[in-house]
Design a protein around this nucleic acid. Structure first.
Lengths: 338, 338
DNA sequence: CTGAAAGCGCTTACAG
DNA sequence: CTGAAAGCGCTTACAG
């Protein structure tokens, strides 16, 4: 594979000039630039990333940490961020925690990110105070997306989870529901993110504003999966006075709720209404009413935030960017039976 | 950040010894190794990947190309491959084509991968003959996963798509279905992979072996999405003699089929049976009968194949590893109405 | 078992 | 506008 010396020789210039010409730096005559470009093309030359990064003092990578790449929201964020970052010339180093607490610990307490990334994007990643310190000590720009733990001095991109939950609840309340259950996140789970706490708060606020009591027996913890939502719903249906509507903290759990209801011979929405949050890929396909959050836009905005800092150095940033959510009414919600 | 010289000075040895000691190479006395390790810990030293890779003549990266990270199968393959590769000490460079043909072209016709990866994993990626040449000319180990285009000399990890389709069909035939439709892949779509061609062949083989005719009006092309499956099913139901069962080439399309059937007031499986291939995350949740393929295992096996070549150099490899599929009967299939 | 020195392939002041 | 030279932070023969 051709090296910079080969190009320099063929073009009849020094390697310094090749370097400048190929990167489009000023202070190169047009004629020289052409000659160098031609030589590079002839030889099929492309600079060695490792060499230029070492010499240039950057890694060329952005580290992107997600809890589970297999979940819709995280995959969508990664897809959007990847495109933006590649476009700007950075490689994406993916750290998928895979739901393993140990993976999280290794990543932050060790030196996995050390000297390896120019910037960090943490998506819904919980951090201990020690992790926070460690990540700040990397000394590179960072951004957090979705909930997780905020990092002092880092911008964050997210939605208003409390508000999104209130929106979902208001829809059910407007339809006339009064006995509404909530499937929330499991606080004891490894890698618990904090999203569910905000959404639970929105649930409670909506009830209070409607002058309704918060019945703790109507709030069940699950683990943000379809199966979790299913189990939680089974539990709800066992109660003496079961709910007429279920607000699940995410669409995956709402899918599970619908399935459990059908398994029990109940119809959705005739017997029980169900709403989620996300607007998962399959939500439209399955007719789920939900509060849509812009996943791709969050990934995109976060990537742009990092790129801006990488290109221009630390700068004035809007510290918390809150993106809009939107109620999407489909076929899983209806007024309660008279 | 501490450099190797700092460690060498503190430990009272040369940088060469630090390098050897920290990487666990032989020819270092135990006592020296301890002293170096202690110095490294004290200083919080970790080698610069760019420097050691440049000096060591490797990039430290494995390039992983997927059509769309947001689809269940691909996300699952990435998750499994990532874990295996990180464990072996390689970083994962993710190239998500995002369904854009242009992204595919840029990746292979340009120099995106040049000098950037030590190995390549192509997941269900279609290649033109030129792309094939380009990728082979990278001169690094490679592996293909799932269908896509085989690359001469590269091992491949996959399932028997023809056989999987036959398994799905045999299940429907055993139940007594005779009029079975097939929702296949869209050959005209950008980034079309070849999976659907094999699965269609399996569909036809199964019919032929059962002595049944292949009715072309029962085969509809769709685009491997829920919405595609939905539209295809609507089209099938318009026919004079609609099918009693639908075999979709993937679970996402099967979800769409179920949804379209329900929207038409038909019950699954009472009126129409539906089966897919994959065992998508949500298949269990939605009660879909399917032929399960081991997605994580394919990612894992592919990663191990690359690691083996990276560590030991080119070696004798099983050229095509075919992993097992498995019929999973749930609630979407039943005998046809008498 | 250990060290001095060259080299990996670039980029970047510094001079001109 | 261009080049010679030093340097980025490691690893690797080569000697001992």
């Amino acid at each position: 594979m051709a090296k910079i010396d080969d190009v320099a020789r063929l073009a009849g210039v020094s390697t310094a000039t090749v370097s400048r010409a190929l990167r489009g730096l000023p202070m190169v005559s047009e004629e020289t630039r052409q000659r160098v470009a031609a030589a590079a093309t002839t030889l099929g030359y492309v600079a060695s990333p490792n060499a230029s990064r070492l010499a240039g003092g950057r890694t060329g990578n952005v580290g992107l940490v997600v809890p589970r790449i297999t979940r819709w929201f995280f995959a969508t964020v990664v897809e959007a961020a990847e495109e933006t970052l590649h476009h700007a010339g950075w490689d994406l180093l993916l750290y998928n925690l895979g739901g393993r607490e140990q993976a999280r610990r290794d990543l932050f307490s060790g030196y996995a990110l050390h000297k390896r990334v120019d910037a960090v994007m943490l998506v819904a990643t919980p951090l201990t105070p020690d992790d926070c310190d460690a990540v700040v000590r990397l000394g590179v720009p960072g951004v957090t997306v979705s909930s997780g733990t905020p990092v002092a001095g880092w911008p964050s991109i997210r939605i208003d989870d409390v508000g999104a939950a209130r929106t979902a609840m208001r829809h059910l309340l407007d339809l006339g529901h009064r006995r509404i259950a909530h499937i929330s996140g499991d606080p004891s789970s490894e890698l618990a993110f904090t999203t569910h706490l905000d959404r639970r708060r929105g649930y409670e606020q909506a009830l209070q504003r409607a002058g309704l009591p918060v019945d703790p027996t109507l709030v069940i913890d699950a683990d943000f999966t379809v199966l979790g939502g299913e189990a939680a719903t089974v539990e709800l249906l066992r109660q003496d006075d079961p709910p007429t509507a279920i607000f699940a903290a995410c669409d995956e759990m709402a899918f599970g709720a619908i399935r459990a209801l059908r398994a029990e011979g109940l119809r959705v929405p005739d017997d029980v209404s169900v709403i989620g949050i996300d607007d998962h890929d399959l939500a439209a396909a399955l007719g789920l009413s939900t509060v849509a959050q812009p996943a791709a836009e969050q990934g995109n905005r976060a990537a742009l935030t990092l790129v801006a800092q990488l290109l221009a150095g630390p700068q004035e940033l809007s510290r918390a960017e809150i993106l809009q959510t939107r109620l999407v009414v489909r076929e899983s919600t209806a007024p309660p039976r008279p």
